[in-house]
Design a protein around this nucleic acid. Sequence first.
DNA 1: GGTTAGCACTCTTGGAAGTAGAGTGCTAAC
DNA 2: GTTAGCACTCTACTTCCAAGAGTGCTAACC
Lengths: 342, 342
Amino acid sequence: MGLDSRKQRVLQAIVDDYIATAEPVGSRTIARKYRLGVSSATIRNEMSDLEEMGYLEQPHTSAGRVPSDLGYRFYVDRLMAPFSLSPDQVERVVRMYRTRVREIEHLVQATARVLSESTSYLALVLGPQFGQAQVQSIHLLPISESQAMLVLVTSAAFSGHKFIEIPPGTQPDDLLHISRTLNTALAGLTLDEVNAAAWRELNQELRRYRTVVEQVVYVLEQMGIDEGTERMYTGGTTNILALPEFRDVEKARTVLGILEDARHVHELLHTDQAGLTISIGEENRLAEAKECSVVSATYQVGDKASGRIAVLGPRRMNYAQVVSIVRLVEKILSESLARSVC
Amino acid sequence: MGLDSRKQRVLQAIVDDYIATAEPVGSRTIARKYRLGVSSATIRNEMSDLEEMGYLEQPHTSAGRVPSDLGYRFYVDRLMAPFSLSPDQVERVVRMYRTRVREIEHLVQATARVLSESTSYLALVLGPQFGQAQVQSIHLLPISESQAMLVLVTSAAFSGHKFIEIPPGTQPDDLLHISRTLNTALAGLTLDEVNAAAWRELNQELRRYRTVVEQVVYVLEQMGIDEGTERMYTGGTTNILALPEFRDVEKARTVLGILEDARHVHELLHTDQAGLTISIGEENRLAEAKECSVVSATYQVGDKASGRIAVLGPRRMNYAQVVSIVRLVEKILSESLARSVC
DNA sequence: GGTTAGCACTCTTGGAAGTAGAGTGCTAAC
DNA sequence: GTTAGCACTCTACTTCCAAGAGTGCTAACC
């Protein structure tokens, strides 16, 4: 059932070559370029076996072979040579994060750029979701007769502000009272937990300020959900258009169309596993990405929030390189965010 | 020098037809489809004249004619039939803005979507620049020993918040003092004016808090500049890929590449004229857009801030329709933002 | 028994040649 | 000034052919 070592070496050579050239790989090419010590006829026999076992495909008789999803999967899991990033490449990434950036948004945006520039593929970054961020403090500032501003500070380098309506006649002291009470009640809770707790509070001490508290709770909840869900950053969209597999505009359209709907991107990057995920061709649940591969990873903002970074490219992706880069960027981004938190 | 009325009608027919079909237009097509009451031979003579005058071009002998930039320009300025949006189209736009949205960002994002969906071209929206927004109030909230949060409220539905460092030992009362003083000094000033005024203040009353005030001033300035400059929203990027003129991936790449650099977009949309601007082909300063046309307009946020919306498409753009839609969207967006302000 | 040379066969790719069709520009007649 | 007619041009499409790449099979070899 398993592949003997020569079959593995042949498969590896084919995948490597196809990644490099985008052309179906023939037996002679393998025999010539990769020193396996056997003739092209032997390679042919091996290739025939590999095809039968499902690791290779033939676009048509008398073309070379192309790896199947299964072939890529085996390559990724077992064969691919570890890729060492050059000091230059590492340096380029590190430099991006050297200056201490306080705006998470800029950091995340820059991450999309560095990912796409380093890989020459399409980079996707989802802003951190803060549902697990803990409320540190809540402030209510009087703005006008009928408006106040709600300012939220969390434990996870995340903060937000929003206007809310207040009943005319509400005094600054009232706002102070509300915010003090809410702070006592909510500090330490995650945004996801706010809802229930706040209602409990409301029914006791803050009954008088029902409409205000309602808004505060709603806004806090939205902040936990929205900020992560809606913010999506991309880099290198045009890189896709440079690849031979997307010379056909229709295919490029399908892939770039994914970006027009943030929900598609979320579906693409969603995973239960922590750590690095590689999703190849048909393994992607999203139909539009069936001809692509995605390398993604989860980054952390301290221990309170997390988001995802990803590189999307053709199935014929330089997996070894991309994996190295995604790992590096994830690590540095997480560190960078952790630094911003404290 | 001017074009007699028959020449104008011929030119109009050619532009209309080319916009509709994307195929070079021949004399027989004009004679058949557009009832000008003359034969194709006459049309041929007129077309020959129009070409000599620079309004038409011939891809090669014995192909039909295609409008030149000059031809489009004349068409846009003098010939094109006013386009009435269907109630459906108007309804679709209006619906988008019906719910009162408080987040400017969402509004602007939605604008990009509605523009691209209504036109089937690429939509570009620049977030409003708030350099002219007037400071309404500034708040400094104590967050931790060494951090405070600066909250800015302006007269233009624009607000922002940012963390700043404070010297350990700074008391809440100190912050209150600083913000009171700054409020007195800066309220009513535009963000662009803040710099000089704040320094004057600093050297008098707030000398003790030099590092804090420095940061406040810097942050306010950045808010005025950044928010507008960096925020760019797009819609319908894949629409471009559906157009026959961009079937060649290289051309599509050139155009979509514009979006990867916000500065390019700014250059593309920059104009001194108020109101609606149409920029055709070579009229665009940006080299990457020499094969495109851009219809853009300035929207207002009350009277304190403004931004731009634009539709980018092929030179063979349905100008009449796009102009109507851009006008409509600009109007409704401005109204919508004005409502948000108060 | 695994390996290999040899060879017939298949399929794509690219070029050449030819043809149909669209469109022009000119001329001469109306 | 307008138009029918016609020769001419150029593209786009088709067909055909040859070259090239690659396979799969067979028979010989170690």
